[in-house]
Design a protein around this nucleic acid. Structure first.
Lengths: 190, 190
DNA sequence: TCAAAAACTTGAACTACTTCAAGAAATACA
DNA sequence: TGTATTTCTTGAAGTAGTTCAAGTTTTTGA
């Protein structure tokens, strides 16, 4: 029995047993407690996080001092700041555990040596990044074309269980409206 | 002297002369006339476009019938619908030349055989996709935290020449406000 | 188990933007 | 070069959302 990341990789590329062995030897699960951060604004991001169980989020603090969630990462998602990671520049984001979460933290140096040893992994990370970019484009489309109420109902239809899982105010900011307005949408007062 | 895409790839990974030769034999430049489309909503996207010279854009038509630009692609950018491309599902987007544009159109079947022959290219496309995703995250951050006027001035500071290059109404929709409002911002009437 | 902290609700006042309509200016290309 | 087309401007009226403040409910963890 091997770890969840290996299973995820195998959905995209075949791995032989020696490659699995290399991966297993380098990857370990760590637990991030609810509300703990793995990245703070201003830090350089040197790690990619694969969510095994639980939920992480990437957020900012806006000029009014309110948190706004840009991205959630649940089971089988990667979360990181790719811009800070690639350019070695200070991050604009916080990355935090929404609930106590198990992740595989993959440091840049470890990832780079894995990519050298198992070049096939490049394909895996390419596909993951291209799909994530595609999802980001759809997200922008929804933000552009739907009203706040439509965005709420749409999300609620697509991910009914997830809505139960995170605080309302985090989801409101992810959908780009205020927590108060979300409360009114749910009460049917709009 | 070889093509612009080969030069771009060499910024990220080394290529030997036989690899360059393979690439050159498979890649050719085509010209897309101003306002012509390379992808329409509902079509399956089977091609990635690398912009050699000119400007492409990805847009949608919103429920009110207005075009909204999600993405511009200028020199050395890739533009495609990765979600349609990977899942072979109908695209939600239009991709069009803003000005007459030279592109390298890379079809899925050609790209896949290139990736088999030159596996190093996986790294190039991985890095390109990760950077594009990072840029999309920053874009969402700006949309979330800045007022319309701030978004305009910020963009204008970052890309002063680009603002001259595209019709105002396209840029307005990209920045997520109306063309009329942009006109007022520019006139200082807000 | 229970006190403290976090999350949610409500209504009233406000505002950053949109929409509409019509005319003026700029640009493309026959 | 001239004219059709595209793009930009302006003001007035409207609205989808925000903000604030205070109270209520739910959840957390010692």
């Amino acid at each position: 029995m091997h770890n969840e990341l290996v299973s995820h990789i195998k959905k995209f590329i075949p791995l032989d047993s020696s490659e699995v062995a290399i991966l297993e030897s380098r990857l370990s699960i760590s637990t991030i407690k609810r509300k703990d951060h793995v990245l703070q604004e201003g830090q350089i991001c040197n790690t990619m996080y694969f969510v095994v169980k639980g939920c992480m989020r990437q957020y900012i603090i806006n000029p009014k001092g309110t948190e706004q969630t840009l991205q959630f990462g649940v089971e089988n998602w990667w979360i990181t700041d790719y811009l800070s990671y690639h350019n070695q520049t200070p991050s604009h984001f916080y990355i935090q555990a929404v609930e106590t979460t198990e992740v595989i933290a993959l440091e840049k140096s470890v990832l780079e040596s894995l990519l050298d040893e198992i070049p096939k992994l490049e394909k895996y990370f390419r596909i993951v990044a291209q799909k994530a970019f595609g999802a980001a484009q759809m997200r922008i489309k929804f933000l552009f074309t739907m009203s706040a109420e439509e965005r709420y109902h749409h999300f609620n239809n697509q991910q009914p269980d997830f809505v139960q899982r995170v605080p309302q105010y985090m989801l409101a900011s992810y959908l780009d409206f205020s927590a108060e307005f979300m409360s009114k949408i749910r009460a049917g007062k709009v």
